[in-house]
Design a protein around this nucleic acid. Sequence first.
DNA 1: CTTCTTGTTACTGA
DNA 2: ATCAGTAACAAGAA
Length: 286
Amino acid sequence: MPELPEVETIVNDLKQKIINKKISKINIRLQKIIKNKPNVFRSALLNKSFSQIIRRGKYIFFQINNSKKYLMIHLRMTGQLIYQKDNKIIAGGHSDRKNTLNLPNKQTHLIIYFQNGAQLFYNDQRQFGVVKIIDEIEFNLIDARQGIEPLNKDFTFKQFEKIIQNKKKNIKAFLLDQKLVTGIGNIYTDEILFDAGVNPHRRTNDLNQNERKKIYLSIKKIIKKAIKYRGTTFNDYLDAQGNQGNFLNKLKVYGRDGEKCLRCGDIILKTRLAGRGTRYCEGCQK
DNA sequence: CTTCTTGTTACTGA
DNA sequence: ATCAGTAACAAGAA
């Protein structure tokens, strides 16, 4: 489930590899993933190169030839972007060791070939991902749908207060809402609320200033830490060097239901909130 | 066989 | 208007 830290890791790796590298061939293996007509998609990319790669929330935008056109990719739940050159894996998303070592596989729906011999594979087990050539208008539309970036300088406590003050949602739904703060998914929502010591059922309008501050600080802390560890994956995650380095064993509540809370020893509970599996500790999340 | 997994959008009802 | 809940999409794990 790529969330902000996973997407950020992929973008940072790809930036070092494919910027300004000429695209020599496009292989569409599953058309339904590509939301353009095949010829439109192909001609938009063929003999062009990516001048910049931008992450916004969980979206990735590959700017084409310094123009206002972009290749937009959203990995949704099981999308992967794997870069290979000379069979060496450089960047991975939600990866699966047994498959990524031998690409393409049956989950490979798109291959972008570069003139220097490198290849970028888009894999997606559940085929929910979105790949599309977009213009400036659509770029701005998607951008406008995203809330504030938790890593940006303008994400101050003052700004966070402004966003949260008029909301009455439960805090779990608040953190999952991409229009408010963008990039946080189910795993990091649970981790952030555990870190902040706040019960996910709490309504935002019931939170006091101190609790809001804790949540604000935990967002920044957890997201930064997860990026440092190159993200979380429950399957075999491969980092830029093909190693497993990940955030999985740093998780404190997600996936730990039924186990003892690392902070107070109570049993971690699991419920359903905002349509998502939600893990929390009743003992120390008030 | 059923149930569960999740990002996003669409829809319903309160 | 705002919010909660659910379905839909899909494939695989348990």
